[in-house]
Simulated assay, not measured.
Amino acid sequence: MRGAALAPAVLATPGAAQDFDRVGALFADRSVVCHSGEDAPLGLRLDTHAGVLAGSENGPVAMAGDPASPLLQRLRGEAEIRGVV
């Protein structure tokens, strides 16, 4: 899972918005089907950099420089991804 290894570095850098496409493919393959548009669970949109930074109704999911961010834990397989069958 090459994209998952890049996620912490990409989301934590000052130019992250420009580099979002590096992890965007991973999100497109695994997350955007549910996490996009107005019906995204808990309002968490993973189809744009701004959506990732906005987080969900429960708060932030990715914080720059924080390897314990919930989204990064899920990408690394350290936390269970909800809704996966």
Rank of each mutant, 00 (worst) to 15 (best):
1 M>E: 15
2 R>V: 11
2 R>D: 08
6 L>K: 03
10 V>Q: 11
11 L>C: 11
12 A>L: 07
12 A>C: 13
12 A>V: 14
12 A>T: 12
15 G>L: 14
17 A>H: 07
18 Q>T: 10
18 Q>P: 06
19 D>L: 15
21 D>P: 03
22 R>I: 10
24 G>C: 09
24 G>M: 10
26 L>E: 09
27 F>L: 14
29 D>H: 08
29 D>P: 11
30 R>E: 05
30 R>A: 07
32 V>E: 03
34 C>S: 12
35 H>I: 09
36 S>Q: 15
36 S>I: 14
36 S>E: 11
37 G>D: 06
38 E>V: 12
39 D>R: 00
40 A>Y: 08
42 L>A: 10
42 L>V: 06
43 G>S: 02
43 G>A: 07
44 L>R: 11
44 L>W: 09
47 D>R: 00
47 D>L: 07
49 H>N: 03
49 H>Q: 02
50 A>L: 03
50 A>I: 13
51 G>Y: 00
51 G>R: 04
53 L>E: 10
54 A>P: 10
55 G>R: 00
55 G>D: 04
56 S>N: 11
57 E>M: 03
58 N>L: 09
59 G>W: 01
59 G>E: 03
60 P>R: 13
61 V>T: 04
61 V>G: 04
62 A>N: 04
62 A>H: 04
62 A>E: 02
62 A>L: 10
62 A>R: 10
63 M>Q: 07
63 M>K: 08
64 A>R: 13
64 A>I: 08
65 G>H: 02
66 D>V: 12
69 S>L: 03
70 P>S: 02
70 P>H: 01
71 L>W: 06
72 L>Q: 12
72 L>Y: 01
73 Q>C: 00
76 R>D: 12
76 R>H: 14
77 G>Q: 08
77 G>F: 02
78 E>M: 03
78 E>S: 00
80 E>N: 09
81 I>M: 05
82 R>I: 10
83 G>M: 03
84 V>E: 14
84 V>I: 08
84 V>S: 12
84 V>N: 11
84 V>K: 09
